[in-house]
Protein backbone atom coordinates (compact mmCIF):
# COMPACT_ATOMS: atom_id res chain seq x y z
CA UNK A 1 0.00 0.00 0.00
CA UNK A 2 2.89 2.32 0.78
CA UNK A 3 4.24 1.65 -2.69
CA UNK A 4 0.87 2.60 -4.20
CA UNK A 5 0.80 5.84 -2.23
CA UNK A 6 4.33 6.64 -3.39
CA UNK A 7 3.41 5.96 -7.03
CA UNK A 8 0.30 8.10 -6.66
CA UNK A 9 2.30 11.00 -5.27
CA UNK A 10 4.99 10.66 -7.92
CA UNK A 11 2.29 10.71 -10.58
CA UNK A 12 0.68 13.78 -9.03
CA UNK A 13 4.01 15.65 -8.92
CA UNK A 14 4.80 14.59 -12.46
CA UNK A 15 1.52 16.19 -13.59
CA UNK A 16 2.50 19.45 -11.86
CA UNK A 17 5.75 19.54 -13.83
CA UNK A 18 4.30 18.20 -17.09
CA UNK A 19 2.19 21.31 -17.64
CA UNK A 20 1.22 20.49 -21.21
CA UNK A 21 0.49 16.84 -20.43
CA UNK A 22 3.10 15.64 -22.92
CA UNK A 23 3.96 12.51 -20.99
CA UNK A 24 7.48 13.72 -20.29
CA UNK A 25 9.14 16.69 -18.65
CA UNK A 26 11.53 18.83 -20.69
CA UNK A 27 14.15 21.14 -19.24
CA UNK A 28 12.01 24.19 -20.03
CA UNK A 29 9.07 22.70 -18.11
CA UNK A 30 11.30 22.44 -15.10
CA UNK A 31 12.40 26.06 -15.49
CA UNK A 32 8.74 27.13 -15.51
CA UNK A 33 8.46 25.84 -11.97
CA UNK A 34 10.72 28.69 -10.92
CA UNK A 35 8.38 31.03 -9.10
CA UNK A 36 6.02 28.24 -8.12
CA UNK A 37 8.64 26.48 -6.07
CA UNK A 38 11.18 28.15 -3.80
CA UNK A 39 14.10 26.89 -5.87
CA UNK A 40 16.47 28.84 -8.05
CA UNK A 41 16.85 28.16 -11.79
CA UNK A 42 20.21 26.61 -11.01
CA UNK A 43 18.69 24.27 -8.45
CA UNK A 44 15.89 23.28 -10.80
CA UNK A 45 18.49 22.50 -13.48
CA UNK A 46 20.35 20.36 -11.02
CA UNK A 47 17.16 18.51 -10.08
CA UNK A 48 16.50 17.89 -13.75
CA UNK A 49 20.01 16.60 -14.37
CA UNK A 50 19.83 14.36 -11.32
CA UNK A 51 16.48 12.87 -12.30
CA UNK A 52 17.39 12.53 -15.97
CA UNK A 53 19.40 9.39 -15.38
CA UNK A 54 20.04 8.59 -19.05
CA UNK A 55 20.79 12.22 -19.89
CA UNK A 56 18.56 12.38 -22.97
CA UNK A 57 17.02 15.71 -21.96
CA UNK A 58 13.59 14.30 -21.17
CA UNK A 59 12.22 13.13 -17.88
CA UNK A 60 9.83 10.22 -18.12
CA UNK A 61 7.40 9.26 -15.40
CA UNK A 62 9.58 6.25 -14.72
CA UNK A 63 12.71 8.36 -14.16
CA UNK A 64 10.73 10.80 -12.07
CA UNK A 65 9.28 7.99 -9.94
CA UNK A 66 12.72 6.45 -9.47
CA UNK A 67 14.07 9.77 -8.23
CA UNK A 68 11.13 10.24 -5.92
CA UNK A 69 11.57 6.74 -4.56
CA UNK A 70 15.26 7.42 -3.90
CA UNK A 71 14.33 10.62 -2.14
CA UNK A 72 11.81 8.79 0.07
CA UNK A 73 14.31 6.12 1.02
CA UNK A 74 17.15 8.55 1.61
CA UNK A 75 15.23 11.22 3.48
CA UNK A 76 12.89 11.02 6.42
CA UNK A 77 9.60 12.79 5.82
CA UNK A 78 8.29 14.47 8.94
Amino acid sequence: QGQQTMLGKANEFFQICDIEDKGFIARCDMQRLHGELPLSQEELEKVFDTLDADGNGFLTLEEFTTGFSQFLHGEEIP
Partner: peptide, 29 residues
Protein backbone atom coordinates in the same frame (compact mmCIF):
# COMPACT_ATOMS: atom_id res chain seq x y z
CA UNK B 1 35.44 16.96 -0.55
CA UNK B 2 34.37 20.42 -1.77
CA UNK B 3 31.58 18.93 -3.87
CA UNK B 4 29.88 17.40 -0.89
CA UNK B 5 28.65 20.56 0.79
CA UNK B 6 25.35 20.03 2.59
CA UNK B 7 22.39 21.23 0.61
CA UNK B 8 24.32 21.63 -2.61
CA UNK B 9 24.62 17.94 -3.38
CA UNK B 10 22.28 16.40 -5.93
CA UNK B 11 20.51 14.59 -3.12
CA UNK B 12 20.10 17.78 -1.14
CA UNK B 13 18.66 19.67 -4.09
CA UNK B 14 16.40 16.75 -4.93
CA UNK B 15 15.15 16.61 -1.35
CA UNK B 16 14.51 20.34 -1.48
CA UNK B 17 12.56 19.94 -4.70
CA UNK B 18 10.34 17.12 -3.50
CA UNK B 19 9.80 18.75 -0.12
CA UNK B 20 8.66 21.89 -1.95
CA UNK B 21 6.24 19.85 -4.03
CA UNK B 22 4.96 18.13 -0.92
CA UNK B 23 4.32 21.41 0.87
CA UNK B 24 2.83 22.91 -2.29
CA UNK B 25 0.25 20.13 -2.34
CA UNK B 26 -0.48 20.17 1.37
CA UNK B 27 0.14 23.83 2.12
CA UNK B 28 -2.33 25.42 -0.28
CA UNK B 29 -6.07 25.28 0.30
Amino acid sequence: DPNMKAGTTSEGVLANFFNSLLSKKTGSP
